[in-house]
Design a protein around this nucleic acid. Structure first.
Ligand code: ZN
Ligand code: ZN
Ligand code: ZN
Ligand code: ZN
Lengths: 185, 185
DNA sequence: CGCGGTGTTGTTATATGATTACATATCCCC
DNA sequence: GGGGATATGTAATCATATAACAACACCGCG
């Protein structure tokens, strides 16, 4: 049994995380930015669940030398990671998620499941183009478009109902259908 | 000099607010929902600046009988207003803004200026359609699409730079170019 | 080497945003 | 008038994010 078992679709998540870290190292090296130990650890913790994660959830796991770090430490690292495109911020969840393709600049477009909490990253050119057109028509200069679609992912559509679901045993991290959920525990 | 002078584009804002309140009254009456004094006051305060406003900013103005109300009072009213489409919540700002056309259901699409803080509401069918297609292609069932575009509005593009701007005297509510701004004071 | 600038981290406190749990009041229908 | 649904009051607490300031580390340069 692997050490980090919490993802929706089965895959070799340990490899998945180490890959993300390796790519991040390479990217920072090529750009002359510094992926310090703290930043690296935060990035690893963002990836750990392969789903959106809140800053304080990361903070809880951030023991450095057995000592709990300050919130600012985590936020500063997250700012760096977001600025460098290694992590996206999900505005509607106040949460962060690792970007699988940080090498090319892109805004985040996400399908966020209200049940399992997973966030699927899209990169739909039609959506981007439609937004760009609409903004241009009004003379608005875009910094960063945000597209976050809340709903129900295909997997969760096929489960009877989250709160009564017998699948809780095999997917213990399932979210309750609350109004405004947290990204994680 | 009017009592509520803080908007970007000059217009008769007092009429603008009273119009929104009248429409809200009519809409609630037709639906059988109740626009209570508290809800009405919160709606008025949401509209007061004609721009996104945080819950606690509203709270600060919410003296009822000279007494400060509890946060929950404001949040409950905001929940009602959002559910009834009278107000939109801006996820990227944790703020609320009045909807100019609450009569027909629609998700909010916004162009949010990073300088003046104004939010222009769009309703672009191409954007909606592109998002719907993209979600359908992945079997994702949409609850609520969120589109919030951060950038610079036409007015602010023509001012030299927010922090050095001489226009501060005529637009005292201008925002600083900070990383993650508040909706209001 | 030693200096000074830039960038990173530490520490403490606080602002802002949102919810839980429970009690009380009010309205409307019967 | 009883009784259920809706609305508000009160207190405490949780969650998210930033401010202000100090210390340290790295790096290029004289
Ligand atoms: Zn993974
Ligand atoms: Zn991405
Ligand atoms: Zn107005
Ligand atoms: Zn609207």
């Amino acid at each position: 049994m692997p050490t980090t078992p919490q993802t929706t679709i089965h895959h070799d998540h340990d490899t998945c995380v180490s890959g993300a870290l390796t790519r991040a190292e390479a990217l920072c090296a090529s750009r002359g930015t510094k992926l310090t130990p703290i930043r690296r650890q935060v990035l690893e913790l963002v990836w750990s669940g392969h789903r959106p994660r809140g800053a304080y959830a990361i903070l809880d796991d951030m023991k450095v030398d057995g000592k709990r770090v300050a919130p600012l430490t985590v936020y500063r690292a997250l700012d760096f990671l977001v600025e460098n495109g290694l992590v996206h911020r999900l505005e509607s969840l106040n949460a962060y998620i690792g970007c699988p393709s940080p090498d090319h600049a892109h805004p985040g477009q996400f399908l966020v499941c209200r049940d399992c909490g997973d966030a699927i990253e899209l990169n739909d050119q039609r959506v981007s183009a439609a937004i760009a057109d609409s903004a241009r028509a009004r003379g608005f200069q875009i910094d960063r478009p945000t597209v976050e679609v809340r709903g129900l992912c295909p997997v969760c559509q096929n489960r009877p109902h989250p709160s009564h679901s017998p699948a809780d045993t095999e997917r213990p991290e399932a979210r309750q259908p609350v109004t405004r959920q947290k990204a994680e525990s």
